[in-house]
Amino acid sequence: MVNTVMFWIIAALTVIPALSLLFARKAVHVAMSVVLVMVGLAAAYVTLSAPFLGMVQIVVYTGAVMMLFLFVLMLVGVDQREDLKETIKGQRWIGLLAAAGLGAFLVSIIGRVTLPTADTMPSGDPEAVAIALFDRYVLVIEVLGFVLITAAVGALVLTHTPRLRPRKTQLEVQRDRVRVGADPVNKPMPGVYARHNALDVPALDPEGKPIEHSVSRVLEIRHQTQEGAEFRAALEDPSRKEGDR
């Protein structure tokens, strides 16, 4: 028999974080909750005398799968916010109803049946699992190996972006640049000829005028740039020039 306390702990540990799937706004939060669910499930496996599977569950799910999810989340941008407002008409209510109905039916049916419980415990230790896997189910394991390899290759293929046209040579890049009338040479770095700490200060052209676009756009948005006018004024004011020296 299973420890009743253990069951309730596991139940709480799985169901409550699982609900975040429905209500949490940020995907990262959801992912972390699911990690919790996975850990809970691993505990359940151990309770159900499948310790090896429990370990695997932790390694595979919390260790690998969910981390993969997190990677992807970071790749697509953590701030991909979801508008919880439903767009498909009726989807939310019918969906909820259907899911709830499904759960209700399953629970009611399973609650009604009585299944015999064997006295013997299945031996879930690695040895027993290994014997089963590599003896009776060895063919399946082989096939699964193929599946995994295929999946890996598939993921490679999916995420690989083929180069559609040949790489541009420097010469071509340069020509294109001239053609569109952009700067024929490299953009000046910020802070060139400036006296301040460089990044937030526009560069100066040979005539001594600040070049606005030499400063990173990000800094502009954050309003962390220095006005070029100030320095111009300083340059043009000979008195200050003397004083500073």
């Binding site: 299973v2 420890n3 596991i10 169901v15 991909q80 709830a100 419980t117």
Partner: peptide, 29 residues
Amino acid sequence: MDPINFVILASILFAIGAAAVLLRRNAII
């Protein structure tokens, strides 16, 4: 305690998962 309870727990989790698929628009979720 009867292990059948774990099956019931599984059903509930399954329903929650299904609801998530139905209701969430974020593909990752």
